[in-house]
Write a protein that binds this DNA or RNA. Structure first.
Length: 199
DNA sequence: ATACCGATTGCCT
DNA sequence: GGCAATCGGTATA
């Protein structure tokens, strides 16, 4: 177990950037470097856990490191990693990864050559992750998380696609990655800017 | 029971 | 930039 999944989502999320998502798929090994994430907490109106535990979101309330997969818009699946203590209802949405291994499989799954994993539903389709992995552990299941090198610069922005809770700057991404779900917006806040700007 | 809508994507103008 | 696709979850009656 890594300590990263035991801390709160807004702190854990940016720390997960640079980690590698690895899936031992039936077609072969697939992996990608996490470049974009979002944090959600239980007292956050944008979170699925906001109205309490239900059959759909119960994985979010499991211990940190539990996989939460949800179905949305009648056609898409997205991946979260539950974080924090069991029962706290927090998660980190994986919004984009950089394809690393199994790119040929991803291209087949997506029926495209590019933009394979530049979005939360895209990466699920590219990896071919089944909803049955909902509730499994990210440390000992077929879908795993491996530590990696942190980005040189992390940017924080408002989260995407929500209508409540926009104030929180809980979307984090690797400033140098070309594999993001959106292009850089004018409104962005460098994280740890005091370190970076120190002369 | 029925209506509304979403932590998205891709195609159209 | 706008909008349809498509359906389970959630709200409303």
């Amino acid at each position: 177990m890594s300590k990263i999944v035991s801390i709160d989502a807004p702190q854990a999320a940016p720390l997960l950037l640079g980690w590698t998502l690895v899936y031992a798929s039936p077609s072969g090994k697939i992996s990608g470097r996490i470049v974009e994430v979002e944090a959600y907490t239980e007292d956050d109106p944008a979170a699925h856990s906001y109205r309490g535990k239900t059959e759909r979101n119960k994985s979010l309330f499991e211990q940190g490191g539990t996989v939460y997969i949800y179905f949305t818009y009648g056609m898409h699946y997205c991946l979260n990693i539950a974080v924090g203590p069991k029962g706290s209802g927090q998660g980190v949405l994986i919004r984009a990864v950089e394809p690393v291994e199994g790119i040929d499989i991803m291209q087949r799954n997506r029926n495209k050559k590019d933009n394979l994993t530049s979005g939360p539903a895209k990466l699920m389709q590219a990896f071919g992750i089944p909803k049955s992995l909902n509730g499994t552990s990210i440390f000992d299941g077929p879908l795993r998380l491996m530590p990696g090198k942190a980005p040189g610069q992390v940017i924080a922005t408002e989260r995407i696609g929500i209508k409540k809770g926009q104030k929180a700057l809980w979307r984090f991404y690797d400033a140098e990655s070309p594999h993001l779900s959106r292009k850089h917006s004018a409104k962005r806040t460098p994280l740890n800017y005091r370190h970076k700007n120190r002369a």
